[in-house]
């Protein structure tokens, strides 16, 4: 690994921490919200004057997606001509925000007059396009439209009620399966967890499943695992020293300083790292534990054979 890539590695480590920090901020409340101004005129219009609202009592097909707990749900009703296989009427009932209602309205207008196979070519991106685009955080509304359509057509064709898609549930907060994440990622060329959250909501609740979503994305795009805590393979002494310095500066010292302690890097001799504890750390009963902690961190991020010693 050359010096540039070791710098890149550090950047990756930092960005991962940043994303963890972001997830842990549990109460992103009443901030960064989508306001009326983020919606296109067509979304506003479809929300304020939705088309094809209501139930079809004698519908030939019904597709139901979402739940009131998740915050949005769509029930799609289709009337289908048996002769021609064309959708003659489409109506909807939606519980959700402006973009969910607008997406539902757009969907019903798009599928009317199409054969079932033609209708199935409508993608979530098509729905968003018809509406003049949706804010990133609202793309899941268009995905919900597409899913309701699939569910309705499956219902008509008598495909066994695949209400829950195959595969394990990845996001427990919003009940999103691995299969859905894979499909939406491939359909929309999504490569980051944030995009997956915008499109499926997965990872938008407690955030526990985010590492799993990362793994799924890596598999989908058969990327090598991002250099998360995987260590650089072979380091020259120079790189190792630079890396140890960087990690002590960015990972270790801030934590100790927060407790009025500190640590200073004295020397590096092969894999022996010699440090001196400062501030409240000197004479602290927990000094040995602190040194062990530093060692564990360096082993994790630099090399397995590192030992840390504290100058007395």
């Amino acid at each position: 690994m050359d010096f540039i890539s070791s710098l890149y590695y550090l950047r990756v480590v930092k960005s991962i921490q940043f994303s963890e920090y972001r997830i842990l901020d549990i109460t992103r409340l009443l901030c960064n919200d989508v306001t009326m101004w983020d919606y296109s005129d067509r979304v506003k219009d479809a929300f304020l004057h939705p088309k094809n609202v209501g139930e079809i009592k004698d519908a030939d097909a019904v597709g139901e997606i979402g739940s009131i707990i998740c915050g949005d749900a769509l029930k799609l009703y289709l009337k289908i001509d048996r002769e021609t296989g064309k959708i003659t009427d489409a109506r909807f009932q939606t519980f959700g925000c402006a973009s969910a209602i607008a997406s539902s309205s757009a969907l019903t207008e798009m599928v009317k007059g199409k054969t079932l196979d033609e209708a199935l070519t409508v993608t979530n991106q098509d729905i968003a396009d018809v509406l003049g685009g949706l804010p990133d955080q609202k793309m899941h509304c268009s995905v919900m439209g597409r899913e309701a359509l699939e569910a309705a057509i499956a219902n008509y064709r008598g495909v066994p009620v695949a209400k829950k898609e195959e595969g394990r549930v990845v996001c427990k907060c919003f009940d999103v399966t691995e299969e859905k994440i894979r499909r939406v990622a491939m359909d929309n060329h999504l490569t980051t967890v944030e995009e997956i959250t915008n499109f499926t909501k997965a990872g938008g609740g407690c955030g526990e499943c985010i590492p799993n979503i990362e793994t799924i994305l890596q598999n989908v795009w058969s990327l090598k695992p991002t250099e998360k805590p995987s260590k650089p393979k072979k380091l020259t002494n120079l790189h190792k020293i630079a890396l140890i310095q960087e990690i002590i500066e960015t990972e270790i010292r801030p934590g100790l300083q927060a407790d009025n302690g500190d640590v200073e890097l004295i020397d590096i001799d092969g894999s022996r790292v010699i440090v001196a504890l400062r501030g409240m750390c000197t004479g602290c009963m927990m000094a040995a534990v602190t040194v062990k902690g530093i060692q564990a961190k360096l082993r994790e991020l630099v090399s397995d054979d590192i030992t840390v010693e504290a100058l007395q």
């Binding site: 009443l30 915050g71 955080q137």
Partner: peptide, 13 residues
């Protein structure tokens, strides 16, 4: 306090 206005996907804490 709905989820859609909170900026996250979770409604009011």
């Amino acid at each position: 306090g709905s989820a859609c206005t909170s900026g996250s996907l979770e409604p009011s804490h």
